[in-house]
């Protein structure tokens, strides 16, 4: 078998007490293990509600924060032991698209500025003509035209357009993996599909894998191949997206899927209101034990099953 593109092993992040011993610790992510294959490219969903550890995971992979323990291997190499040059290469191969397209652009510059930075950082083109060609190619891919958008300021464009520009910029660097952290949750419904389609196209035609971080199961269902479901930092179900959504096993997954409003049918009855205020996970639990429910579908089964 081919070496996986990204291999995450037992990744755990504990936000500590620091000097204040009175404060309780928060276990944001625990014992997260995953393998993301590079060939063929896959869209892997990390799903969960707020506080489940999704963004902690994204930030760890992107190297924005150090984990308490656990390892991330990129193409077989330990990310934490990278040399300066390797970090530079990793930064190019792993790109990110964030939730809020309005806040990633500097309002004082035209949006074309983010392309200039990319060119300067990574020396992508030797002359201006190459620059223009590369930019134009990337923009066409996301359905935009250079002369229409590049010299605009961020406030003159819609959220959907800004987000597509971000994807075009990421594509231009020819990455092998894009971390998309809630890329469509701030985009209007009628424009969402366009962004999702671009993701699918990049996967199919250009072999770029995605880690798609979301709380929206319906879009995950439409585009992703595999899914990891997080609950309080712990993986409770993983495997084939369609299988998990059609046949959820963990009580939390069941409740979650039953709560998604669809246009096809009305909610059945009422769900029980649990009388708990949100409390963060403060204890490190033993690693989850997965049971294979069906081929390509694993879940942590609790006693109530």
């Amino acid at each position: 078998m081919d070496q996986p593109l990204l291999e995450i092993n037992d990744l755990t992040k504990i936000f500590g007490k620091g000097l204040d011993q009175q404060k309780s610790q928060v276990v944001a992510l625990q014992h997260f293990s995953a393998e993301i294959a590079g060939t063929p490219a896959k869209i892997v969903t990390i799903a969960g509600e707020s506080g489940s550890g999704k963004s902690t995971l994204a930030n760890s992979i992107l190297g924005f924060m150090k984990c308490t323990f656990g390892t991330i291997h990129f193409k077989g190499q330990d990310v934490s032991k990278f040399t300066k040059e390797e970090i530079f290469r990793y930064r190019r191969e792993v790109q990110a698209v964030f939730q809020d397209p309005y806040s990633v652009y500097n309002p004082f510059y035209c949006v074309g500025h983010i392309f200039d930075i990319a060119f300067n950082n990574f020396h992508l083109a030797s002359n201006d003509q190459d620059r223009r060609d590369l930019t134009e190619e990337a923009l066409n891919l996301v359905g935009l035209k250079g002369e229409e958008v590049l010299s605009k300021y961020p406030h003159q464009l819609s959220g959907g357009q800004l987000q597509r520009l971000m994807i075009a910029r990421a594509y231009m660097l020819k990455p092998s993996l894009i971390i998309a952290d809630e890329p469509v949750s701030m985009i209007d419904v009628s424009l969402r599909a366009m962004i999702l389609e671009i993701m699918v196209k990049l996967k199919k035609e250009y072999g770029i894998s995605f880690i798609y971080i979301t709380h929206d199961f319906s879009t995950a269902y439409q585009i992703s191949d595999e899914m990891y479901l997080l609950y309080h930092g712990m993986t409770v179900e993983k495997g084939d997206t369609v299988k998990i959504i059609n046949n959820p096993q963990h009580p939390y997954t069941k409740k979650l899927i039953a709560s998604i409003p669809t246009i096809e049918e009305k909610w059945e009855g009422n769900i029980e209101i649990s009388d708990t205020s949100v409390s963060a996970q403060s204890e490190l639990l033993p690693p989850p034990l997965f049971t294979e429910v069906e081929p390509l579908h694993w879940a942590v089964l609790t006693e109530s099953n």
């Binding site: 969402r192 366009m194 389609e197 199961f217 269902y221 439409q222 246009i263």
Partner: peptide, 24 residues
């Protein structure tokens, strides 16, 4: 029609449509 078609579902896979600038 576009809004309804653009709505992703967990019941069935469908090709999602979106609104392009010209149509909008």
């Amino acid at each position: 029609q576009i809004l309804v078609d653009a709505m992703p579902s967990i019941k069935r896979k469908k090709s999602l449509t979106s609104i392009d600038e010209q149509t909008r």
